[in-house]
Design a protein around this nucleic acid. Structure first.
Length: 562
DNA sequence: CGCGTTTGACCGGCGC
DNA sequence: GCGCCGGTCAAACGCG
């Protein structure tokens, strides 16, 4: 059980940060912990460790210190045992839930109509873009529904937070895995997607020749932001500014300068209706590794783009992505201004030549304004098969409950309706918001209203997550945008690991803030220094903007007449 | 002096 | 064909 041990380690690690740590044997992670300890050690502890060099300590003091250290170690060991027990309980619960889910799936499968089968097919196709989930190995022995296993075997699953984008051209080998640059994967998606892409215009002159003339996917991010640009971690250089029709605010054009030949552009414009909203449109694909701090946005936009692209492919069978996922709503934590990814039902775009997906980080689910989600593209979305009313929402309907906090889903006790055609508005909140002890977590922590999940919600949530590959893909994408690229390292089982993590985060008793903090940090923490990137979307709605990339707020711009 | 921003000019697509 | 419009170029400018 690779995953559990991992999490266990993280929990231990977190604990060790707050208390002191016993050098607990086996696990490499724990060695890490031990190594980290000196920096975090209390002064007393330091003196103990300083040993002979600290000559001014009396032996009595040393003895006290040793006793204290022993006591602390005992506590930590106890805590570790508690955590292990908890972990085992959770795993048991998970297995139980999974078995239930599988039986349900089997049942549904039997009841499945041809349409459903088609939908499943589509799901399969859809999941290609974001990867697939693999049922935990421990369940593979006869417990995994045959269909799932077959699909997995067929497709070579991989994925999860490490993206795997497969093109329709099988064997294209366009697989970016584990390079910590999800955005690159996005690249793949877009490239493949179109059999090319293109804007009718000369936008990317560099790319012409590389990429086919097709539609170039765009990802539009709406966010409340006082700074001139969103801090997405990339380096941008402004190359133009225009006043566009219908908006008094000028539109600024940036290109990525991380690599000289990078074709990625972004447009930044204030919303005409609400000047506090910054509309950032990304276009193109990075042809270089991204800074860690940029992976969050890149993953998010890539996830959105991939969904969009999947939904806009020419094959009628692949129209499902957007449709299946529409309504998936990833909320970010900020009780005052819930940020959300709305991936809602498609709508027509004003510029059909550019398939565009809009991630609205500004909408408040409780507000009267409708979720601003659109898949704008010329994709062959089929509203008949997936009526707009279908909604699979991750957002809480309560304004003070956020659905995506500290790397957890928050839950809402509404049943999941697996029927895509039903008017299911499922709010799943798997998370619990706990005070965070580590700096990153506390930085993200915006919601102090933990609401304990009813047990049945857990089952429902698990069901949701495990039932729909599309959902899993979207979930993986969104999570990866939060987690960054490094937290999940395996190809296989990444998503279910993720699910487990989510569950752990949810299940861990609120009494142990350390544990929750640990879990959250586990989710939030990338191995390297990727915190910034990992948390980017969890930042308060006023992201920092590097002076370098700041082009002066649109309001400051001298309006340029063309 | 180097680099990023500003901004008028220019280009190409699209609609009439 | 013409004009509008979005997007890009590149020289001028400013800042550190």
């Amino acid at each position: 059980m690779e995953f559990p041990s991992q999490t266990s380690c993280h929990q231990v690690q977190e604990d060790n940060r707050t208390e002191s740590s016993p050098p607990d044997e086996q696990h490499p992670r724990q060695q890490e912990i031990v190594m980290q300890e000196p920096a975090l050690a209390t002064p007393e502890r330091s003196t103990v460790e300083a040993g002979p060099n600290v000559s001014f300590l009396s032996k009595k003091e040393e003895g006290d210190e040793l006793e204290n250290a022993k006591a602390e170690m005992g506590e930590v060991i106890e805590e570790n045992q508690r955590l292990k027990m908890r972990l085992n309980r959770i795993l048991n619960d998970y297995r139980t839930l999974q078995m239930q889910f599988q039986s349900i799936v089997e049942q549904e499968r039997k009841d499945c109509s041809g349409e459903d089968e088609e939908a499943m097919e589509e799901s399969e196709l859809v999941s290609l873009s974001l990867g697939r989930i693999r049922i935990p190995r421990r369940n593979e022995k006869g417990k995994v529904p045959k269909t799932l296993k077959e699909e997995e075997d067929k497709e070579g699953l991989s994925l999860g937070l490490e993206w795997k984008f497969e093109t329709s051209k099988s064997g294209s080998g366009s697989e970016h895995v584990g390079n910590g640059s999800p955005s690159n994967s996005v690249e793949e998606v877009v490239k493949e997607e179109g059999g090319g892409e293109s804007k009718g215009q000369k936008t990317n002159r560099d790319e012409i020749g590389e990429q086919n003339p097709a539609k170039k996917a765009r990802v539009c991010v709406r966010a409340r932001c006082d700074t001139p640009t969103l801090n997405d971690g990339c380096q941008w250089r402004k190359y133009g500014q225009k006043i566009s029709k219908g908006n008094p605010c000028p539109r600024a054009y940036y290109r990525c300068t991380v690599a000289p030949s990078c074709p990625v552009r972004k447009q930044v414009q204030r919303c005409a209706q609400d000047m506090s909203i910054l509309i950032t449109t990304y276009e193109g694909i990075h042809n270089h590794p991204l800074p860690l701090s940029a992976t969050a946005m890149a993953s998010t936009t890539s996830a959105a783009a991939s969904m969009l692209l999947s939904g806009s492919r020419t094959s009628p069978n692949i129209t499902t992505t957007a449709a299946d996922l529409h309504g998936i709503n990833f909320s970010l934590s900020d009780s005052s201004q819930p940020n959300q990814y709305y991936l809602s039902h498609p709508s027509l775009s004003s510029s059909p030549s550019h398939p565009t997906i809009t991630l609205d980080l500004t909408s408040n689910p409780s507000s009267s304004s409708p979720p601003f989600v659109k898949f704008t593209s010329s994709s062959n979305y089929n509203p008949h098969r997936y009526p707009p009313s279908t909604s699979l929402s991750f957002t809480s309907s309560q304004s003070n409950t956020t659905s995506w906090t500290n790397g957890f889903f928050s839950y809402n006790n509404q049943p999941y309706n697996n029927n895509r055609n039903a008017n299911a508005n499922v709010n799943i909140n798997l998370g619990k918001q706990q005070p965070m002890e580590n700096i990153y977590s506390s930085f993200m922590q915006r919601n102090n209203n933990p609401i304990p999940p009813p047990p049945d919600t857990i089952a429902a949530a698990t069901k949701v997550i495990t039932a729909d590959p599309n959902f899993q893909s979207a979930l993986a994408a969104a999570l990866s945008s939060v987690i960054g690229s490094g937290s999940i390292q395996g190809n296989q089982g990444a998503v279910e690991n993720l699910i487990q993590k989510i569950k752990w985060g949810e299940l861990l008793p609120p009494s142990s803030s350390k544990v929750n903090g640990c879990a959250s940090s586990f989710l939030n923490k990338s191995p390297a220094n990727s915190q910034a990137g990992s948390l980017m979307f969890l930042q308060p709605p006023l992201p920092l903007s590097s002076p370098k990339s700041a082009s002066g707020s649109p309001g400051d711009h001298r309006d340029k007449k063309n």
